[in-house]
């Protein structure tokens, strides 16, 4: 489904501040695989997701999605097949516009946008049906401006927008990290449910190692721009957080130097 070959990305190239964020990363995902991606701060997780989404083009390497080469396509072209949820709940929605307007723009992702009335009664009932599945009462707030919703509500809405029209690939970059624990649980449950129901292929970045092992079907660890660990199947099932940390240290020769990871491990 997704095939990354030798992806490299350096920031501020040819300056003293040059920073290699991705160092020949190769990764191959089968259809329906749900990868949880973990790693220390600055490991290159966000850069990897952004390179897949086309926010910036990689310096070298090749990206194939469902048999199509997308290496050189721009961000908006790739959006036809890729749904995204961002770490910041403010990023994924248009605050001055209403819930239904946001939804209809997402519903038209990858479709031709025409000069006709965007929202009619049939769209409206479809959207309120879909919103009801979130269980947050948003189905009664179709005409509320999104800026008035809470962070959790906005993030759930972004998740719905990313999956309203089934994407071939769903990219989640620490999408629950900035929510309070209770809301984070709700949005995490929603994520797992939607991914299961729609049989989505997905990559989720997280700093919570327990979550990385609980959710999804495969766990990938990054360190300094490289993939240092890739586990799935029975091997992954047997693993607990301590095993994961030990394995990481063995493979990368470093501590998992992330405050957030340690906190998550203790919690």
């Amino acid at each position: 489904m997704l095939e990354l070959t030798d992806i490299c990305k350096a920031f501020e190239k040819n300056t003293v501040n040059e920073k290699v964020a991705l160092d020949q990363v190769s990764l191959s995902l089968n259809s329906g695989e749900f990868v949880t991606l973990v790693g220390s701060n600055g490991a290159g997780k966000s850069t990897l997701l952004n390179a897949i989404a086309g926010v910036y083009l990689p310096d070298c390497g090749r990206i194939m999605l469902d048999g199509r080469e997308i290496t050189h396509l721009s961000e908006h072209q790739r959006a036809t097949w890729i749904g995204r949820v961002f770490q910041n709940p403010l990023t994924g929605t248009a605050p001055q516009m209403t819930v239904e307007e946001n939804l209809v723009m997402a519903w038209k992702r990858g479709q031709r946008r025409r000069l006709r009335k965007a929202i009619r009664s049939q769209e409206r009932s479809f959207f309120s049906e879909q919103l009801a599945t979130l269980g947050l009462g948003l189905e009664d707030r179709l005409t509320t401006k999104v800026g008035l919703l809470s962070g959790g509500q906005r993030q759930a809405l972004t998740l719905l927008m990313a999956t309203l029209r089934k994407p071939q690939l769903l990219l989640l970059d620490e999408h629950i990290a900035s929510l309070d624990p209770r809301t984070a649980d709700i949005v995490m449950d929603l994520t797992c449910r939607i991914v299961n129901e729609q049989q989505l292929t997905a990559i989720m970045v997280t700093h919570n190692l327990e979550q990385a092992l609980d959710a999804g079907t495969r766990t990938v660890m990054m360190h300094e721009g490289r993939i240092v660990l890739d586990i799935q199947g029975p091997e992954r099932k047997r693993m607990n957080v301590m095993d994961l940390m030990n394995l990481f240290e063995k493979n990368s020769g470093a501590n998992l130097n992330s405050d957030r990871v340690l906190l998550a491990a203790r919690a």
Binding site: A79, T91, A94, E101, G110, R113, L115, K117
Partner: peptide
């Protein structure tokens, strides 16, 4: 008014409101 409520008009509004969001929804801003 009618134009801004069409499918094209909405993404025009969104381009001014949150460019990053509407690009992620497949629009050439």
């Amino acid at each position: 008014y009618l134009f801004l409520k069409t499918e094209v008009g909405l993404v025009l509004q969104a381009t001014g409101d949150n460019e990053q969001m509407i690009r992620a929804q497949g629009v050439n801003t």
